[in-house]
Nucleic acid binder design. Sequence first.
DNA 1: TATGAATGAGGTTTCATTCAT
DNA 2: GATGAATGAAACCTCATTCAT
Lengths: 232, 232, 232, 232
Amino acid sequence: MTADPETPLRADARRNRDQILAAAREVFATQGPEVPMEEIARTAGVGIGTLYRRFPDRDSLIRAVARASFAQVLDDTRSAATEEPTAWDALVRLVNRSHQLQASVHLSLTSPRAREVLHGDPEIEESRDELLAEFARIVEAAKAEGTMRPDVDAGDVVVLTAMVLHRPPGALATAVLAFDRAVAIVLDGLRARPGGTPAGSSLPGRPITVDDLGASALRGGADTAAGRRPTR
Amino acid sequence: MTADPETPLRADARRNRDQILAAAREVFATQGPEVPMEEIARTAGVGIGTLYRRFPDRDSLIRAVARASFAQVLDDTRSAATEEPTAWDALVRLVNRSHQLQASVHLSLTSPRAREVLHGDPEIEESRDELLAEFARIVEAAKAEGTMRPDVDAGDVVVLTAMVLHRPPGALATAVLAFDRAVAIVLDGLRARPGGTPAGSSLPGRPITVDDLGASALRGGADTAAGRRPTR
Amino acid sequence: MTADPETPLRADARRNRDQILAAAREVFATQGPEVPMEEIARTAGVGIGTLYRRFPDRDSLIRAVARASFAQVLDDTRSAATEEPTAWDALVRLVNRSHQLQASVHLSLTSPRAREVLHGDPEIEESRDELLAEFARIVEAAKAEGTMRPDVDAGDVVVLTAMVLHRPPGALATAVLAFDRAVAIVLDGLRARPGGTPAGSSLPGRPITVDDLGASALRGGADTAAGRRPTR
Amino acid sequence: MTADPETPLRADARRNRDQILAAAREVFATQGPEVPMEEIARTAGVGIGTLYRRFPDRDSLIRAVARASFAQVLDDTRSAATEEPTAWDALVRLVNRSHQLQASVHLSLTSPRAREVLHGDPEIEESRDELLAEFARIVEAAKAEGTMRPDVDAGDVVVLTAMVLHRPPGALATAVLAFDRAVAIVLDGLRARPGGTPAGSSLPGRPITVDDLGASALRGGADTAAGRRPTR
DNA sequence: TATGAATGAGGTTTCATTCAT
DNA sequence: GATGAATGAAACCTCATTCAT
């Protein structure tokens, strides 16, 4: 009996846990979040029992993967904001880098099942709120420095970013290029115009703030306001 | 036994088939393509046996739904090209309308399972090729009329369009607005600039043609060349 | 679609349901209520899927078996009360017959699992209450006719009856005899004495009524007040 | 390696063993003999590994619990025979006390699994035989002293005692009272009548001796000759 | 020695598909 | 032709037992 539930986990157990998480991230990415648990276990190189010891059911595994991803994205966002000379550069870096590091987010957004599960997880909600705040800071700064068109707000940018992150895994050379170009085009759409917004390019409605994304945000704003689904 | 397999289907049978198709589209859209067949039958108001009589297995149902969707998109694209005064208007109409009419396409793109199934369906390949051709025509025309930036090609537009169509179902008012704005911003990114492409906005690589999407196209170019498939 | 959930069940379905119930009764009786579902299905001669179609999980099967048993016991009790010349004869018949017909009750009382599940099933509670009422009538009549000792009440008799019904299945000839004798001895203990209760034979406490068994009765009074167990 | 397997066990090891045994008795009593081993370990406050070091598998634990219980009952029986003034008093004390001390016996009798396991354990068989012998002595004595009806034999008494010990765990005040009364009534049934057995009260068959319980005894006579065993 | 991690067999349950009514 | 019952393969998950720390 080692007692308290927060015991840091024996070395080997820790390793296994990490392998499972990595395997799940990968397998979820390629096959969706309904893959047989056994496939995940096999990929991780552990027995099915071990998997279940660490994550008592599929949902808890999905949650763990999503948490790790979100934490990563948040990290990246902060690094970008800190390290890049301008807010615009930070944004560019984010939408370009994230596609490698956090394609995993995309999974969190992809399946009805995953959305269901993630909805309301407190740790995730927290990461998300921090992420939105960070984004808002960057967008404000970019508008202030005159690199971003003034008629958008952080919510708009988040939606576009989510759209862009929605990129599928696995990719041919051409596809990667195509994708990078698409991102560049989207960024062009966001950039401030020398002479102000030209006629005919005014955006519908009003700027979307992160608060508009509100209770839904990435999960629901960009990827749409889920509207709770039946739990089965 | 009534006759050859091409008999146009009795009226009630026809009705059943359509109901099933409609139900499947809806249920796939909200719950993903792995929903229990019985759920689809129930939604359609028919017995499970009837469903199976019309569509001998899940894949064939997925295919039928996808075919109908593709046909629709193609139709829309042609109408837009014909009816709108400029190529740019046609494009704008497409990316805006399609999001209502053919959000269903998105499903075809969403799940690994669906992609797997659709891959190589001749009827779908054909629709897709026609669609790409149509797109290419529109894009060429837009560049010729000076409304679209000259450094893109149809493949780029297809990728962006697919990105934009990837919108999830269910939506709060704000989310819809956010989405329309995002589309507008993307279009701004595609539009020709009065003084030519400004410094710093040059796109990476070279224009992507529909041929680059080649063997993959919507299924693989936009949504990427699937790469690893489940082994099962 | 046949609609309404009360459709009387197709003939073959009905037959299957009955076979499953019979098989479950038997298998529960010999192996306890934790036997593999597959064993039950096999005994019933149906596929495991069929079993699950009729009884969505083990608990619901346990409940169904218990309901049928209780209904039977109630029936027997009423017949006995009606058909036997004296209340005492009715009682004798009950404790003797029931051991053949309703040994099944005993199962309902035997395992913690079963008790857990049955606790609070409305249909069962109802049968039980009617059963208790019937018992009370018989006991009153027996006391009135002078065949039962006056210092007991129906609750006492119920407890003894439950005790006596607790007989295990399967039995060697000797064991059966031993059992019948035990029942006879218990009955002797209940019978009125010619000269009144002899000194030294007065019972502790006060007569137990069916109301004392109250919310618990057979399930909890005789077989003891369960005291809700963890549900796991 | 410390020494031969009979080394009396280090103090802490001893303590662990006892805790496990106590925990097992309790948990078996409330949840049946199929509880997860980990539950037992947890209740005992030891690791699962420790449990398995002491008792190499579940059956061996069941056996250990049963042996301890049987030994206790035997002890009690001897004490009662020695300390009580009459054989009848000894019997009364047994059936009343045992219900507190050895309700555990009942568990040994309760589940098909437990019976299976205990069947043929030499130590248990031995305790049982001694127990039966002791019982026989008491019953003979009681008949000789004129307190017990002459038409019964020790086997009858054993069967009734087992019946009476079959009391479930957990109990409301009323239930306890009800139970004590039931025991009293059963004893009344066993007691000699002043004027001999009255007409209509003659018992069926012939007196059951402990030898009749023979190969089955408590395990099979009272709780009946198991008959069909699981095939597995 | 005590512990708790890892394992995998086995039981439960779901659901795609077939088939009798 | 429509229906819903039956089937069994396959996924989920639990837990007895073994083994590394």
